[in-house]
Amino acid sequence: MSRPRLAVVKFASCDGCQLSLLDCEDELIAVAGAVEIANFPEASRAVQPGPYDVTLVEGSITTPHDVARIREIRADSGLLVAIGACATAGGIQALRNFADAGEYVSAVYAHPEYIRTLATSTPISDHVKVDYELRGCPVSKRQLLELVSALLAERRPELPVHSVCVECKLAGKVCVMVAHGTPCLGPVTQCGCAALCPGFARGCYGCFGPAETTNTTALAARWQALGTTPRDVQRAFRTFNAGAEPFRRESESHG
């Protein structure tokens, strides 16, 4: 195809995933030459109207207005790609799904009546058809560039769904759980980060959400054998991908 028209849009999020595109310093000028950046407000005032060939969507759906806006964006987009844990699982703000959101608003704002928000934070795929998902909190720059390259070459992006353990072993890193008894979510977390945390002597904390096939129950039992309390097991499954089904389900068995 000739230069595809790219849009980058945002819902409830921290901006870190779209910033990852600007963080591809060595590739940024080449990417800007290969695609027409038609709508990327964080980077440019020059916002062109749709339709767009590819729309990258960051953030989760948390307001009545955004429920309507994501439908308009879907209608205006050829391919729609959800980028990051907010867009693929609801993000850290999906912790409200386990609580009384009205009470949350009262805890933060002096005038809760000024605030319009939904009781839940939900991923993009709960509202519209999503063509691809890039996991991560934040997404991996390597996967982001793979996605853009694949779309330019009109092929499927290569986005593996196996666990962090596989890429950790491939990288020749020492298993922090076996060698040091450090609780690690690597066995149930999708790869993509290049096993970052074990390389820093830290257990994986699940930024990329659940891998394709997981046994969270067995892992939770192993954590408890290492001395983790049920409350801390629940906390571990309830972070940036708390809304992802396998993590949500496991978290509800503890605490």
């Binding site: 850290i92 805890a107 933060v108 704002y109 928000t117 934070s121």
Partner: peptide, 24 residues
């Protein structure tokens, strides 16, 4: 900006989680 209510869901979390949670 849609409110994300960090100060509310930080309650009940471990203090040692605050650096990773608030980074978001």
């Amino acid at each position: 900006e849609p409110p994300r209510l960090f100060e509310a869901f930080l309650r009940g979390r471990a203090a040692e989680e605050a650096p990773d949670i608030t980074a978001r």
